[in-house]
Amino acid sequence: MANYPDGPGYPNGPVGGAVPGTPEQRIDAGKFWAGAAAAALVAALTGLVVTLLVRAFDLVPLAPNWTGEVGLPVRFAIVGFGAALVAALLLYLLLVTTPGGDSFFGWIVGLLILAGAILPFVYDASTGDRIATSLVHLAIGLPILGLLPGVGDRAKVWK
């Protein structure tokens, strides 16, 4: 290994930032997407269970009607599954293209969860139903924010 004036990894190291002979990191796509599917299942089940929980207190979360006659808990399960897969795609793109992509992912998803928690309060509905919707949105977002960065870390391999 070449000896650089300030050592490898320091500002005066080799041009381009790469030290000859050091391994490079990549993402194992199969492992990543298997973990993303598991996280999506957790988010879907969380949406289902929390919706059932708030319904037990006679609260009705606000939900889009694009799912037709499907029951309310199933609607939020579908939303949770889809949101987790979209978040996984975002994380994957950030990990393969952006230095520190997992940090940006945390900020982006955290802000989207916050927006989802605030969004029900712009609609005309009872306060209880708006709070219930906010809780369901938070419950769906937290496993996404908590599980996907770990999936990304465990899918990293060195070549």
Rank of each mutant, 00 (worst) to 15 (best):
M1A: 14
N3A: 08
N3V: 13
Y4T: 06
Y4F: 12
P5I: 12
P5T: 11
P5A: 07
D6G: 14
G7K: 02
P8A: 07
Y10I: 00
Y10V: 01
P11E: 09
V15I: 06
G16D: 10
G16Q: 05
G17A: 13
G17E: 15
A18C: 04
A18I: 10
V19W: 04
P20G: 08
T22N: 14
Q25K: 11
R26T: 15
I27H: 07
D28N: 13
G30V: 12
G30C: 00
G30W: 06
K31V: 15
K31A: 14
W33Q: 00
A34F: 09
A36R: 12
A36E: 00
A36P: 05
A37E: 02
A38M: 13
A38T: 11
A39G: 06
L41R: 03
A43W: 04
A43K: 01
A43R: 04
A43T: 03
A44V: 08
T46S: 11
V49D: 00
T51W: 04
T51N: 07
L52K: 07
F57Y: 10
P61S: 03
A63I: 01
N65K: 11
W66D: 02
T67F: 14
G68W: 03
V70M: 14
G71N: 00
L72W: 01
R75W: 02
I78M: 13
G80W: 09
G80T: 03
G82C: 14
A83E: 07
A84N: 12
A84S: 15
V86R: 05
A88V: 06
L89Y: 02
L89A: 15
L90K: 03
L90Q: 05
L91K: 07
Y92N: 04
Y92W: 08
Y92Q: 05
L93P: 00
L93N: 13
L93H: 04
T97L: 15
T98K: 15
G100T: 11
G100A: 10
G101L: 13
G106H: 10
W107N: 01
I108W: 08
I108F: 11
V109T: 15
P120M: 11
P120S: 03
F121E: 04
V122I: 10
D124Y: 00
A125F: 00
A125M: 01
S126T: 06
T127F: 07
A132P: 04
V136K: 04
L138F: 15
L138M: 14
I140N: 11
G141A: 03
G141E: 02
L142G: 05
L142M: 14
L147I: 12
L148T: 09
P149K: 03
V151Q: 02
G152H: 06
D153E: 10
R154T: 09
K156S: 10
W158M: 13
W158D: 05
